[in-house]
Computed example of a mutant assay.
Amino acid sequence: MIDRGVAAILIGAGALVACGGQERDQGAAAPSARPDPGRAPGGPVLRWRMTGGFAGLGGPGSLPEFSLYGDGRAIASARTGSAAPLPVLREYRLTAQALRRLLDEARAAGLDRPRTIGSGRVADAMILEISMGAARTRIEQPEGQPGLPAVRFWKRLDPQGWPRADQAAPPRHHRSARVAVLAGESPAAPGQDVSDWPLNRPLGRGEQAAGGLCSVVAGEDRDTAVKHVATAGTDHRWRSGGRVYSVRLRPMLPEERTCRDVART
């Protein structure tokens, strides 16, 4: 009799051959890759992001498109259709039964063990990264491999398509309690607007992380930074400590506390 784990690998390998891809298994599932909502109610259990491509998606400090937590909360980037100084996030909440079912489906799709699917030889390839606990699956050009179980499951991680019966509460705007201010020196072009940075802490004192000089703001400082940057727009420049900077704001996820957390997510 064929072991169920071996059978799953053989089935996955057959799908990859049909799609012309290659799979590189990176080891057995770690215990933390099989999250139990009862054991870790607050931590992330599933997450995905898209990286690569000609536009260079998923750069340092970028937000995952979707994060699901052990208490049933899901935080997803809203599709606004335009660049915003502060990315817009929506919060959803699954029932306990729907959460358990979704995690079972993730395991059935093989997401509880780290692996890479694809040749790795395609320049500027789009890469889908799905994390389940400590296990990360990377899939090259996922839209070209719709038959893969992991890709089919990925389509389930669109909260806008979740049945109402699976949701414990209506969707709502997610307000991050903390925001990372990511600054980089950028002299203003002729005619470009420059304003004094509204916070007391100079931008130049930030920690080098997530592709810029990073500072975490909360409370009144958070609200002040969001208000001024949102009003000024993404092309504005900010004067701080005798230098001029460009600034982008990155909402922090519930488990993130520091700039190092932002760089790791």
Rank of each mutant, 00 (worst) to 15 (best):
L199I: 00
W154G: 07
S77W: 10
F66D: 03
H236N: 11
G212T: 06
P170G: 01
F54A: 15
L16P: 03
M132I: 08
V88A: 12
C259Y: 03
A55G: 10
A30H: 09
R205D: 07
A18C: 10
R264I: 02
S32R: 11
D196G: 04
A230I: 09
E91D: 02
L249T: 00
P44V: 05
S67T: 14
A83E: 04
L182G: 01
T80F: 12
A98C: 06
L148T: 06
P41R: 12
A106E: 03
P37R: 12
L57H: 14
D71Y: 15
R79T: 13
V194C: 03
W197F: 01
A230H: 13
R239P: 00
Y245G: 00
L203F: 01
M132F: 14
D71H: 15
K155G: 15
V179T: 08
R39H: 11
A106H: 04
A18G: 13
G20M: 06
S82A: 13
L102S: 08
A108P: 05
H228E: 07
S62H: 09
R101C: 05
D193A: 06
P60C: 02
A98R: 09
G133Q: 12
L63I: 12
P254W: 03
E129P: 03
G42F: 11
R4V: 08
A232E: 04
R260H: 06
Y69L: 10
C214E: 05
R24E: 05
L10W: 08
A183K: 01
Y245M: 00
Q97R: 14
A29D: 07
D158T: 04
A169M: 10
T258V: 00
G211C: 01
S77L: 14
A165N: 10
R257E: 06
G120N: 05
G191W: 02
L203S: 00
G233N: 07
A209I: 00
A28H: 08
P60W: 06
G144W: 09
G118R: 08
L68N: 10
R138S: 10
A15I: 08
S62C: 05
G233K: 06
R79H: 14
P149G: 05
T258D: 01
A96H: 09
V88T: 15
